[in-house]
């Protein structure tokens, strides 16, 4: 459904590289996630696929259509929700939706079943101007506008950035249901915890893809045992663990440290006790997407 072959793109006449050597394919009906921090090149890929930017090298197709040659046909069949809230702030919810439905040559009625569930949540405020909506409601409205013409492919660039936890969860539930409708979805997010809601993900950093797999496949590929180490003096703990000779990697994850070892992990606790960390504990844990991401970055 979506294919990228050796895509390369840079800005300012080649001075600022954005993405390079991107190879990626998304199957029909798949919910595919691009996971990476800000500045990784996610938006550039979205803009190439939505025909807004021309790639410097390589080729890409969406729904079998070339993004350079067939741009006009692609534009009429995809749905795109850019990273920033991009609706008319001075128009009401209903006016925005009506406008986008008409621009795409359809009516709200025609595809109401697609947006019904989402739209019902914001319908009580339909006469409110979009600029006065909360972050979660804005995203719901933007999704409605991107869906109203029943696109074959939906491009969502960081749809949950700046949205509260509850709305984020609701948003991902909606994406699951849209998938059931047969819509292919490419979604990007900087939140590693959202990766598990995708069928497959690509980890992307500094314009290159680190790995493409199912979330489970990526976690399973983590080659070492991972341990969580805790103590009350977190700051000193980080220094001490990094000084431990058998430590391979050590990163702070909230309250605890995630540590991998070159040798035997067991002598770490006595070592920490000697350093004065008398309440230090260690347990073996299953790695998350973020652990894999950091691991891939370091290798």
């Amino acid at each position: 459904m979506i294919n990228l072959t050796n895509i390369k793109k840079s800005y300012n006449k080649g001075q600022i590289p954005a993405v390079s050597n991107i190879n990626l394919s998304v199957d029909r009906g798949e919910l595919f996630g691009l996971i990476g921090p800000d500045g990784a090149g996610k938006t550039t890929l979205f803009r190439i696929l939505t025909t807004l930017l021309l790639p410097d090298e390589g080729s890409a197709t969406v729904d079998g259509l070339d993004v350079v040659k067939d741009y006009a046909r692609i534009r009429s069949r995809v749905g795109y929700m850019p990273g920033r809230f991009s609706l008319y702030q001075d128009l009401t919810i209903e006016e925005n939706l009506n406008f986008f439905a008409t621009v795409f040559g359809t009516t709200i009625k025609e595809n109401y079943h697609l947006i019904e569930e989402i739209y019902q949540q914001i319908e009580p405020f339909k006469d409110r101007r979009a600029g006065k909506l909360s972050g979660g409601m804005k995203q719901k409205l933007a999704l409605c506008c991107a869906l109203i013409h029943k696109p074959t492919v939906l491009f969502l660039d960081e749809p949950t950035t700046g949205v509260d936890v509850v709305s984020r969860k609701e948003f991902w539930d909606m994406l699951q249901r849209l998938k059931q409708e047969g819509i292919t979805i490419l979604v990007s997010t900087p939140y590693m915890d959202e990766a598990n809601r995708c069928d497959r993900i690509a980890l992307i950093q500094k314009g290159s893809i680190l790995s493409i797999d199912t979330p489970k496949g990526i976690v399973d590929a983590f080659p070492q045992n991972l341990y969580a180490v805790r103590s009350t003096k977190t700051h000193q703990l980080l220094r001490d663990v990094r000084e431990y000779p058998d430590t391979d990697s050590c990163f702070a994850f909230g309250e605890s440290l995630h540590v991998t070892f070159k040798g035997d992990p067991q002598p770490l606790i006595p070592y920490l006790n000697k350093k004065g960390q008398t309440d230090a504990t260690m347990e073996k844990i299953a790695p998350g997407i973020e652990d894999c991401f950091i691991h891939l970055l370091n290798n």
Partner: peptide, 13 residues
């Protein structure tokens, strides 16, 4: 500036 041009361009309009 508001980013709505992006959506308008990615439309049959």
């Amino acid at each position: 500036e508001l980013g709505t041009m992006e959506i308008l361009l990615v439309s049959p309009f």
